[in-house]
Design a protein around this nucleic acid. Structure first.
Lengths: 221, 221
DNA sequence: ATGAAACCTGACCAAACGGTCAAATTGAGC
DNA sequence: GCTCAATTTGACCGTTTGGTCAGGTTTCAT
């Protein structure tokens, strides 16, 4: 049973992937209500009825998309713990979040839409996983402060600043591109933004950065 | 003609105001597609058909709402120029933007929705007014840098950081409240956030703040 | 080969939506 | 009090949308 990966289940997995990918793009661009199952099906290259064979309702499909996005976010979030040193940890975390905004803008947009509309689908995640994650990281930041390794800042304010600033490069990319003469940010421009964000925040909380771009040459190449 | 403010025109103005107010709330909470003219009419306390007497189409009503929001934003933006000193100017600007997020969260949400969906209605504003405003303020920041009054930072990155961080307290207020045990931010909590945002950003760009809360006791009372 | 289960799809349906309209009501000017 | 334009409203309409369904096709174990 197990040894044979049938053509069937492979095809099924591929169709599901195509639907979820199309759904993420359409939900990101049009929001939950603005997206139609017809648009998603067309983008996935299947008839609408077939989409409903794989996902019973629009809401079930949406929920799956949002859950996938949350898992990606959670992976990135755990990069916060990769280092004990506040400079390295924050640099790594901010860099990772910036790169996610660059490479996964649609996921960030879906998330933003969901929060804007009072999180009708993912409220339970906010109240469990996100709340726990935040509490432990607040404790870490408070410890750094009490150890004198950074200025005394409100940990929540710092986290929100990191989230908002990094996600801005996904959620508001249209505004950024319009202010960039309508052109997408080049890799160099994005690298400048990323390095500046890291530098301003680190300096803002009283951490003197040693050298630029010491951590992770990054996705700019 | 002029001396008599008829009951009629007063009632008309009042009805228009009620519709626009209801529309702002509903568009903020549900997005353009998620909002229905029926919901807006109900919230404004009038039948749907009457709403269409005042605003011919849903899109015309939406456009009016967005234009009003843009005007408020523009007023706040000009507070950037109130001072020549970078510390005062940035403090004043950030404080003003934070207070707007606190007092006008729905407007910010409508704006965020619009940008998320690639600004189908206000693209012309982005390409004219916003582009010009940004260009002149970039020049001011560059001058401050060249005069050695602040660290050399990319002006765009700084502006985007200010916008995203301050607007986060409107657009993502639901997430913030969830992480605040489901309770709204108290005036004190908000004041802490506002002061921390100012302090981190100013320190982040190499401006040493003199004393806390020297500028504008603020809307916290 | 064959039967059964999984998969696919064109046609269809009920609900919701933006918008219209004709008829009723109101109120300012005479 | 009368007139007429402005305003209000319930009923209605065409379109779009999420979802269903019956029937067809493919795959696979035997």
């Amino acid at each position: 049973m197990d040894r044979k990966v049938s053509t069937r289940s492979a095809a099924r997995a591929e169709t599901e992937r195509a639907i979820l990918s199309a759904a993420e793009a359409v939900f990101a661009e049009h929001g939950y209500r603005g997206a139609t199952t017809g648009m998603i099906a067309e983008r996935a290259g299947i008839p609408k009825a077939n989409l409903h064979y794989y996902f019973a309702t629009k809401e079930a499909l949406y929920r799956q998309v949002v859950e996938n996005i949350f898992m990606i976010w959670l992976d990135a979030a755990n990069s916060f713990d990769d280092c004990e040193d506040p400079e390295e940890a924050l640099t790594h975390y901010i860099t990772t979040k910036m790169d996610i905004s660059r490479q996964h803008p649609m996921g960030s947009k879906v998330w933003a839409n969901e929060i804007l509309h009072r999180a009708p689908v993912i409220q339970d995640y906010l109240e469990t996983t996100l709340r726990e994650w935040t509490a432990t990281r607040i404790a870490i930041i408070e410890r750094w402060v009490s150890e004198g390794r950074m200025d005394p800042v409100d940990p929540r304010t710092l986290l929100y600043m990191i989230w908002s600033t990094t996600q801005h490069y996904a959620d508001f990319i249209h505004q950024i591109e319009t202010l960039n003469d309508g052109k997408p940010l080049s890799d160099d421009q994005f690298a400048v933004a990323r390095d500046n964000v890291v530098r301003i925040i680190l300096s803002g909380v009283g951490i003197r950065a040693r050298a630029a771009s010491s951590v992770k040459a990054g996705a700019a190449r």
